Amino acid sequence: ADDEVAKLLVDAYRKNDEDKLEEVKKRYNISDEQVKRLIRKVL
């Protein structure tokens, strides 16, 4: 599931889509710190 979330985050990140990032964060209840970590893992 982590990889799936990471893909969604990276996708939103690449598109610079703040709304999507927020949506994913809320849906999976993850912190900014986790977001950064997941994005770093993929990029």
Rank of each mutant, 00 (worst) to 15 (best):
A1M: 15
A1E: 12
A1V: 15
D2S: 11
D2E: 12
D2I: 12
D2H: 12
D2V: 11
D2Y: 14
D2N: 11
D3S: 10
D3I: 11
D3H: 11
E4R: 09
E4A: 10
E4Q: 09
E4H: 12
E4S: 09
E4V: 11
V5Q: 02
V5T: 03
V5H: 03
V5I: 14
A6M: 12
A6H: 07
A6S: 09
A6P: 03
A6D: 04
K7I: 10
K7Q: 12
L8N: 02
L8H: 04
L8G: 02
L8W: 06
L8D: 03
L8F: 05
L9Y: 01
L9G: 01
V10R: 05
V10P: 00
V10T: 07
V10H: 07
V10L: 15
V10F: 14
V10N: 03
V10D: 03
V10Y: 14
D11R: 04
A12H: 03
A12I: 04
A12T: 02
A12L: 08
Y13W: 15
Y13V: 07
Y13L: 09
R14P: 01
R14I: 14
R14C: 15
R14L: 15
R14Y: 13
R14K: 12
R14H: 08
K15W: 09
K15F: 08
N16V: 03
N16H: 12
N16G: 15
N16A: 07
N16F: 07
N16M: 09
N16W: 08
D17F: 05
D17M: 05
D17V: 03
D17H: 04
D17E: 05
E18P: 14
E18L: 15
E18N: 15
E18D: 11
D19T: 13
D19Y: 11
D19E: 14
D19F: 12
D19Q: 14
D19V: 14
K20I: 08
K20D: 03
K20N: 04
K20V: 09
K20E: 10
K20P: 01
K20A: 14
K20S: 08
K20Y: 10
K20C: 07
L21W: 04
L21D: 00
L21F: 09
L21V: 08
L21T: 02
L21A: 03
L21R: 02
L21Q: 02
E22V: 06
E22T: 09
E22M: 10
E23F: 08
E23C: 08
E23D: 08
E23A: 10
E23S: 08
E23Y: 10
E23V: 05
E23K: 08
V24Q: 01
V24W: 04
V24S: 01
V24E: 01
K25E: 00
K25F: 02
K25Y: 02
K26Q: 10
K26W: 05
K26E: 06
K26Y: 06
K26F: 07
K26S: 09
K26R: 12
K26H: 09
K26L: 10
R27D: 03
R27A: 11
R27E: 06
R27Y: 08
R27G: 02
R27S: 05
Y28I: 01
Y28H: 05
Y28F: 11
N29P: 00
N29V: 02
N29W: 02
N29E: 05
N29D: 06
N29G: 13
I30M: 13
I30L: 15
I30A: 00
I30G: 00
I30F: 08
I30H: 00
S31E: 03
S31V: 02
S31K: 03
S31F: 02
D32S: 07
D32W: 15
D32P: 04
D32G: 04
D32L: 04
E33V: 06
E33G: 06
E33L: 06
E33Q: 07
E33W: 05
Q34W: 10
Q34E: 15
V35E: 03
V35Y: 11
V35S: 06
V35A: 15
K36H: 11
K36I: 13
K36S: 10
K36Y: 10
K36G: 08
R37E: 15
R37A: 15
R37M: 13
L38H: 03
L38A: 05
L38N: 01
I39E: 01
I39F: 04
I39V: 08
I39Q: 01
R40Q: 14
R40P: 02
R40E: 15
R40S: 14
K41A: 11
K41G: 09
K41N: 11
K41S: 11
V42F: 15
V42I: 14
V42T: 09
L43C: 10
L43F: 10
L43S: 05
